[in-house]
Design a protein around this nucleic acid. Structure first.
Lengths: 151, 151
DNA sequence: AGCTTGAGTTCCTTGAGGGAACCCCAAGTG
DNA sequence: CACTTGGGGTTCCCTCAAGGAACTCAAGCT
């Protein structure tokens, strides 16, 4: 496919993030690991991904520090767990889920629900300004060049 | 490349969302349109994407209702603008940006800053529970089967 | 010793992305 | 009017990544 390395194109955190989890299957692997599907065979069976690509993706995610390979037996067996870096990536999945629930789920309703520990309610994520706490969406911000904007 | 149609694999809002913007370049096209780069030639120049793939991606995003094609001249010229559906997708980009800023930007700092209209401050998004307003991240929720979970 | 199982490798085929050239059409120019 | 220009794609070929199925390897179990 001759896949472009996005982050070389421009100083852009979106492009850089895509270089970590932008490849096909990677977000779904992350989702599965988050949901407790953490071993090679389980992932392969659940996703129906080719074993070769699964190996590549897992290696890449481990290299990037998103997943950690952890032995669970004295035999050469291991499972994959989210690192702190990977756990924070799941935020993105939660936002994707919310969007998909709203725009793509149809009449059947959302396939998965989130119960929030703090309040015990079935809920969804909401984007707020880290500074003032008010809602913060695409239309609520201006974009400015930051310190790392130089090429 | 024989790309799998993820949403056929399982009832999953993440997989469904990936079918809309999961292909290579799509998130960056969305980012550009959001930032005001909205015409074919501009996008092609900015991204360095092949014209063929840009055509395919734009058509797909228009078909999915994420972008709208809008004439801006009596000549057959048009530009792409975000629909409401597309604007809400940008939430995901904002979360990706935050993660990339934190984990990948390095010493140079974030390449782009967001100024929040409501408070006027340079800020970033924060995920909160839509129900109680407390922080809501990967570790703060339990996953439950929802109404649309049937295959 | 032979069987099983997790976790990959290897190899071939297919099809998507890159790149460059080509095309169409409406305005503007002489 | 013919001629040029430029936005917005098409077409064509080539390369390389994803799919699929078979093969490997190293522990344990029997």
């Amino acid at each position: 496919m001759q896949r472009t390395n996005f982050s070389e194109l421009a100083a852009c955190s979106i492009a850089r993030t895509l270089d970590v989890i932008g490849e096909p299957w990677s977000p779904l692997i992350l989702r599965d690991v988050w949901a407790g599907i953490s071993r090679f065979e389980q992932l392969q069976a659940d996703l129906g991904i080719s074993r070769k690509v699964l190996t590549e993706r897992l290696n890449h995610l481990v290299d990037e520090g998103v997943l950690e390979r952890r032995p669970y037996d004295r035999r050469p067996r291991h499972e994959y767990v989210l690192t702190e870096k990977g756990t924070e990536l799941v935020d993105m999945l939660m936002v994707m889920t919310r969007w998909g629930d709203k725009w793509l789920a149809g009449k059947a309703g959302p396939p998965v629900l989130y119960r929030h520990h703090a309040c015990g309610e079935i809920s969804a994520v909401d984007l707020r300004c880290a500074h003032c706490g008010e809602p913060m969406h695409a239309r609520d911000v201006d974009l400015l060049a930051g310190p790392g904007s130089a090429r």
